[in-house]
Amino acid sequence: MIELRQLNKSYSVHNREFHALKNINLHIERGEIYGVLGKSGAGKSTLLRSVNLLERPNSGQVWVNGVDLTTLSLAQLREHRHKIGVIFQHYNLLDSRSVFGNIALPLEITGRPEPEIQRKVTELLELVGLSDKRHHFPAQLSGGQKQRVGIARALATDPHLLLCDEATSSLDSESTTAVLHLLKKINRELSLTVLLITHELDVVKKICDRVGIIDHGQLVEENATVTIFSNPQTKVTQQLIQQALHFYVPDQNDKDSLVLKLTFIGKDSDEPIISSLVKKFNVNFNLRQALIEKVQDTTVGFTICALTGEASALEQALAYIRSTSIKAEILHV
């Protein structure tokens, strides 16, 4: 659906070259929800805006639905933009138009006849659950409602791709959940490809099939969401996840003990592994931290624990853990 090839973008800020994007290669499948995660200033926004060429890259190709957008004329590009919906962090609704008018705008721009606009907007209002707000103005809506109007507007021209620019970053947790739920629903029901950028791990965790981590303009890591969570490869990713989960190695005196970080994925978490350890190897077990996260539909559990006991027993216990699918990381011996 989307393929970015060797994308480069640099700005000159106060006569100094700033590389916003460095050799980005990205491939997103049709029907996928792909999240780009990164700190602010990492280049997420530039990346997203390159996809509909709001930001023109210095070099590289932007293939969307089989067309390299960088080769198109302005008029052709306009046609293609009609098929790429965008939602924004700050909603960017027109204050001068009602909810109806805002959703109707893309349809007016593409010159649809009035009855079609009426029908389509009514349909979309139902989809985003705002049928009763049809004649309200943006000033009368909550953040979550505004974003749902934004989504309806983005969907008005039946796009095959939806770009989400920090779509939930201005919302409270309840609205965030509702909006993400809606995005997931749209993705499934309309088989719409979604590219979202965010600095919130929560968003990625809840709906993304795959995640790319961007840092200093480079795509440093990319994988299925569960894998990124359970087995982050790069330091940047590990940091991001740790910060987001508030999962830190406790600063406690664990002398003479083996401190382990255990990661359970999916069914692993169902097994009574701790009690087995205690029973089988006669080791003592101290729980330092534990966390269960739902990553999309998969449960991922993290545990930090300190084992004490005879050295041989500890060794056997570790070997046992490693024989299962549970991932064990030694933090301290």
Binding site: L54, R78, H80, R81, H90, N92, P106, I109
Partner: peptide, 17 residues
């Protein structure tokens, strides 16, 4: 707001529109 202008372009407006 610049965001609104960007939104307009992302919707593929012509200059008269």
């Amino acid at each position: 707001p610049a965001g609104l202008i960007e939104t307009a372009h992302s919707l593929g407006v012509t200059t008269p529109q």
